[in-house]
Structures are given as C-alpha cells and as structure tokens.
Design a binder for these strands. Structure first.
Length: 585
RNA sequence: CGGGCAGUAGCGCAGGGGCUAGCGCACUUGGUUCGGGACCAAGGGGUCGGAGGUUCAAAUCCUCUCUGCCCGACCA
C-alpha cells in the first residue's frame, strides 16, 4: 500500500475527547473515525488490523471444531417473544416494524436465532454435539457509550453456540473455549485473565469473563495474590467475620441525628460491624410471557461495615433489574429512612438479609422511628428474610479460598463464556430424541469475544509517547517503508522486492520531509521500519528498525527481503512462544 | 434518565452586541530546502450546531432544540 494513495490520513493533534492513549492513537493514526456516540467506522488500517484479529479467532474456533455461519442482524420478534427476552430486555435492544407492521428487532446477541436454526437441524442424539460461530455486527443501544472502542453501541462480535446432549458434553466444549480464548488473546499478545462472573441477562449458571486488566476498565476484578482466586466483583465472595454470641433482649435507644452508620457508630461508641444497615431498592419483575412489569420494594439488610453488591442483590431478589428506591416507596411500608430496618415493616416487599447479619448477634438496627435505633436485634428472633450473600468484595477483604488479603483492580471485559443449559432450548422447543427414545432439551452454551474492544485493548497495551506499537500478529502491515532519497526508482525497487517476497508493506512514497515520515511511521507503529537514506545507501544498504525495541541494523539491498522475513519470523516467534495453554480446573 | 462541560474552517483553539470572524497545524501554487513534525512568498476554505426571539445591529443576549464529551444511574 502506498501512503500517497491511502484513504485515511494522520492527525497531528488528538481530537478532543480522546482521553486514553490507545484511543487517541487509533484516531490519530487513522485506524478509526467516529460517526456518533458509540458508532465508529474502521478505516483501511483499522480494518486490516481487525481482519487479522478475526482470522486468529477463526483459526482457533476452527481448531476446536466450530463451523462458521452467519445469522441475520435483523430478527423477527417472534423468536424473542418465545424466550421472553423481547419483554425482559429494555431499550438496550432496538425494535422496529417492517412495512407490513411486523415486529422486528436488531439482534444484540443470537441465542434465539441460533436456537431457531438448531431446532430445524437437530432431531436425534446422533446429530450432537454441534458447534457454530459467527463474526458479525451487533447493535446494543447502550445508555452510556464511552472511551472510544471500549464501550460502543455498534460493534463486531465473535459469538459461538454449542449444542450438547448432556452436561458432560457441555463441560467439554466449555473447556475447549476456555482454552481457545487464552490462545486467541495470547496470539494477539494481549495479557488476559479469566474470572468467575455473573451471567446477567444470559441467564445461565456457570460463566467466565476474560479480562484485560487496565485502569481504563469499568469492571472491578477481585484477585487473590496467593491462591489465584479471581472473580468479577459482581460475584466475588470473601471470608466474613461473624459475631455469634448469646442473644440479648432488644431495646430502643434514642439516637438523635444519627442518619448514617458512621454517625450511629460514633454516637454509640461501637464498631460499624456491630450495626445492621438497611438499603432500599426497587426491583422490576417482568413476566416472560406477557411482558407485564411489576415493581416491588427490596429491603436489603447488611452489616454496617460492608456495602451491598447490587448485582448479587438483584440475583438474590430474583429481580430483572433494580434501582434505588424513592422515599415514598420506603415510607409506604412503614419504614423510616435513616432509621430503617425490617422490624415493624409492613406490606408486600422482598427482604434479603446478608449472611453476615444472619450469623451475627445483637446488632444495632433502625427502629423505624425518627431519632431512635434498636440495640441487640437478632435475625430469626426479631425479623426474617431470605438469607444470601449480597456483600460487595473490596480491596484487603479476605480471600474466600485461602484467607489472604484480596486485591481489587480495574479490567475490560474482552470475552465471556456461558453455560446456558436448557434456558433457550426449553423455551424454544429445541429437543432431541435420545437413545432410549425419550425427548430431551438440547444443552447449550454461548461464547463471545468483542473484536473491536480487543483491538482497543491491544492499542492501549502497546503504545509509547510517539504512537502505537501493535504486535506483528495484529499490525495492519508488517513493514513501514520510508524513502528519503530523491531518486524514486530506488524506493520503487525495494517496495517491489519486499512485496514479491510476500511481505506486507506500507510504503511512504509521499513528498514529505523526513521528520513527517518518521513521525507518521512511529504513530502508525508498524513492527518494522525500513529507511532508505543516503547515509547507508552509499554502502548499498538500507536501515531496518524494530519499533518495539528501537534496535536498528543495516542490510544490503540484495539481502533485504530475506533479512526482513527473518525479522518478522522472529517477532512472530516471540508471540508464539508465549501462547497461553491454560485449562479450566 | 439525572448532574456538569462543550459545539466557530479538515484537526486543535481564540473572539463573547458594532463595520470584512481570527490564530496554529493541515490544504493549493511558485521557489528554496532535504535523515526526526523545514523556510519564504502568494492563495483557497466558514449556514459561528439548528429554530425562534430581543435589537438599528446577534457568533456574541434570551428561549427552545439537536449533537458530542465527562461523572453517575446502566451495561456484555
């Protein structure tokens, strides 16, 4: 490719709003351009890099026996009504009517579409297992796109779907993905970890997320430095300390102006962990068949020294979504905000009690009377509710496995794998006949990788003050060729030699100053830069510089193509040597 | 959806009732330069996000609206 002919150009200054290095360079180097909030075009360089990533994904998916297909972006709403997700998913999924007034949706994932396909193909156990995947555009109308390609509304996703007769088969294909994903990310040279995760709207049981740890991430990852325990904070557990002591009689005490746990603890001279605080949310419950929504107050009781993890609470309360409650919604149940507890609460609501509270005794709780608290309250004796772990894990809390202090880091989710089970096969009637003649629902799994997000993370990981330095496996071209001599024929000759040798070359044939060419080469950051200049040309040589290391060598023009191929092979070998082969244990 | 900030040339920004709307970079032409974002000269490019209003006069003031960014809610 000749730079003189390239569609995109480089930008000297970062467009405003590009606040991470990776995003800034992808824009400046001309990989991507923004159209609207969370909507981007891929320019030639970005598209080539994307295709390289996609091909790595294809190779690894093919390697575990997956077959590539392509499903429609526009889905008929019928199949989404069958599973109920037409109703349970809110505005994040865009809908429209076709000209005949039929309900249509823009598929944000393809469990429905693939199950619809599969039920037409699968009849007997002899047809199983099956595994398909696609690399396709998704539209999710995220309420808050941000950070360039990290969180967007339109994006390319690799999604695969497995169909098995039994849990054993699902485990096998799940493990295959677990391993393949590590191979994919490491072939892209991106460090990633797998963490236990919440299955969210997918509704499955077992799931893992693949995380690229970085401050630009929005997810919080809890890790144990000692035993390797890792989990998304949404599901992370930790070792709790309990106070199982003899129950004392409950008693009202006056606690004027004590609206927060801190006020209360200092007023009563007790540690925060001897209090039980109430957190009020409202859960939305959606009927999967009719789409009818009902709201219900959720009262969460947790020890004063901990915070509620909303996703855990939402799961425990079996709500489709939750939001903070308004004051009227709380007082309607006879609860006084600031002095609230379950004691004396009336009406229909959902009570969830953290196990830290249920297993501790004699905690201070609200009296549901302004200015008053109750001392020595006890779960079971004074109030009841569903006991669950709804506490949010934090830095320095104790590892649930080994007891070591936990770490908390930020991460970007670049992939996920779900064991779906029979959630979709049952609701969509995707059954097979087994050897004993009985009809059984197919057991499914779904597995995703965000391609654009992966590119964004790689750009974030590999850059310096001058620009990108993408790994050779992902870089849009292998070589950036710069000619600084007047005689065009020399550059053309070398460009030709390299291309004939099968090397991917970006040739800067523009009439620009040396400084401009060097700066653009650094910005685009191809792994190898070749400079044709009078300095070494006198000896019949050209210079080869490795972007990553800055290491420079001069080669004779006759040897150039072979030497460069060797350099490329060396860079690729470094990546290959670090392919992660990790099994799920 | 709530809070904050911002829309002026391709990009980054200045100007904040008054006469022809500026600067840097980028762009065009000519010349000089030629190994780290060159120099000189001459040029081209604007519905000042949109609509309505106030005024003799609006990029500038007012109202509404659209769009983008950041924080939160939210989210795979």
């Amino acid at each position: 490719m000749r730079m003189s002919n390239m569609f995109s150009r480089t930008l000297r200054e970062a467009p405003s709003g590009a606040d991470s290095k990776g995003y800034e360079y992808l824009l400046r180097a001309g990989f991507i351009r923004q159209m609207g909030a969370g909507i981007f075009s891929l320019l030639p360089l970005g598209f080539r890099a994307t295709k390289k990533i996609e091909n790595i994904i294809r190779e690894e998916m093919d390697r575990i026996g997956a077959q590539e297909i392509l499903m429609p972006v526009v889905n008929t709403a019928d199949i989404w009504k069958e599973t109920g997700r037409y109703y349970s998913i809110d505005k994040e999924m865009s809908r429209f009517e076709d000209r005949a007034g039929r309900d249509m949706v823009l598929a944000m994932t393809h469990e429905e579409a693939v199950t619809d396909l599969a039920r037409g193909e699968i009849d007997s156990y002899k047809r199983l297992p099956l595994l398909v995947y696609q690399i396709q555009t998704k539209w999710r109308d995220d309420p808050r796109p941000r950070a360039g390609l990290i969180r967007v509304r339109e994006f390319t996703m690799k999604d695969s779907y497995s169909f098995d007769r039994d849990q054993e088969g699902l485990d096998k294909v799940y493990r295959a993905h677990y391993k393949a994903y590590f191979r994919i990310f490491s072939r892209c040279a991106l460090p990633a970890i797998a963490v236990g995760a919440d299955s969210g709207m997918m509704g499955g049981k077992v799931s893992h997320e693949y995380m690229y740890l970085s401050p630009i991430g929005e997810d919080t990852i809890i890790t144990c430095p000692k035993c390797g325990y890792t989990a998304n904070r949404q599901v992370a557990t930790f070792k709790k300390e309990y106070f199982a002591e003899e129950m004392l009689p409950m008693q009202e005490v006056e606690t004027p102006d004590c609206k927060t746990i801190d006020d209360l603890a200092s007023f009563l001279s007790i540690p925060a962990k001897k209090t039980a605080k109430a957190v009020f949310m409202v859960g939305t419950y959606v009927n999967d068949h009719t789409g009818e929504e009902t709201e219900k107050l959720i009262v969460a009781i947790i020890r004063g020294d901990m915070d509620v993890e909303e996703s855990k609470l939402s799961n425990a309360a079996k709500a489709n979504s939750i939001r903070p409650a308004h004051e009227e919604e709380i007082t309607a149940h006879g609860i006084v905000p600031g002095f609230g507890s379950l004691i004396g609460a009336k009406g229909d609501f959902v009570a969830i009690v953290d196990d830290s509270v249920a297993k501790s005794n004699n905690l201070v709780a609200g009296a549901n009377k302004a200015g008053w608290h109750l001392i020595n309250t006890n779960y079971g004796r004074d109030y009841t509710g569903t006991v669950a772990d709804i506490a949010s894990a934090r830095q320095d809390y104790l590892c649930p496995v080994c007891g070591e202090k936990l770490n908390s880091s930020k991460g970007v989710e670049i992939g996920n794998i779900f064991q779906l089970g029979t959630r979709y096969s049952e609701s969509m009637n995707c059954y097979y006949q087994s050897e004993d003649g009985t009809r059984k629902p197919v057991i499914m799994g779904s597995y995703g990788i965000g391609v654009g997000r992966l590119l964004a993370c790689i750009a974030e990981e590999y850059n310096d003050e001058a620009g990108l330095k993408l790994p050779v496996s992902v870089a849009p071209y292998q070589v950036h060729l710069i000619s600084l001599v007047k005689d065009n024929a020399i550059g053309e000759d070398i460009y030709d030699r390299l291309q004939k040798a099968g090397i991917e070359v970006l040739y800067d044939d523009r009439k620009e100053s040396a400084g401009v060419k060097f700066a653009d080469a650094d910005l685009i950051g191809l792994p190898i830069r070749i400079t044709i200049g009078n300095r070494s040309l006198k000896e019949g040589k050209v210079e080869v510089k490795i972007r990553k290391t800055g290491e420079t060598t001069a080669f004779l023009v006759e040897d150039l193509a072979d030497e460069v191929k060797a350099e490329i092979a060396k860079l690729q070998a470094e990546i290959d040597a670090n392919i992660v082969e990790k099994e799920l244990n």
